[in-house]
């Protein structure tokens, strides 16, 4: 067992974990952060995307021990009283159908907008490579990112 210390959505946690424990299972099973779903299980789909020290990562492909000492933000940590602007944008643009990919799409969109506050449609589509929507609802997801950018971006 390995002792780790991780800050998740602003709250500090200390735990003993097995080396093989995946970050997504730590978040869901230990901390109850079930807002981050497991999708493809093969690091293709991006539904488990969270931010680790300010960068998007696929939490099914990170070991909890690798996240030791880091700050994790999940979709559950975005709203501070009010929704995060990207969450609002997804609602306004109807950028979700079944909703399974949505947490990952939102986390990847925030990452994209922080790096590029006013992306072109092409840059949005490239920036969201690695996040798949099985409902194929990409048109409105792209519109939501454009909407969020127009409203002031990821902040």
């Amino acid at each position: 067992m390995v002792r780790i210390q991780i800050t998740v959505d602003g709250q500090r946690h200390e735990d003993e974990v097995e080396g093989r424990l995946l970050l997504v299972h730590y978040l869901r099973d230990r901390l109850g952060k079930v807002g981050t779903p497991v999708g493809c299980d093969t690091s293709n789909c991006g539904s488990c995307t969270v931010r680790m020290d300010g960068q998007s990562v696929k939490s099914c492909s990170v070991l909890a021990v690798q996240a030791d000492g880091s700050e994790i933000t999940t979709v559950e940590g975005l709203a501070t009283g009010e929704w995060h602007p990207v969450q609002t944008a997804f609602k306004e643009c109807h950028a979700l159908q079944c909703g399974y990919c949505t947490p990952g799409m939102i986390m990847a969109s925030i990452d994209l907008l922080e790096e590029n506050p006013s992306p072109s449609e092409d840059e949005i589509r490239h920036g969201l490579e690695g996040n798949l929507c099985r409902c194929t609802g990409y048109q409105n997801i792209v519109k939501a990112v454009q909407y969020a950018a127009a409203q002031g971006g990821a902040q």
Binding site: S43, T49, Q55, S56, V57, K58, V62, E129, G130, N131
Partner: peptide, 9 residues
Amino acid sequence: VADPAVRHR
């Protein structure tokens, strides 16, 4: 290579 999230790690 891969996608932005994979390129971060």
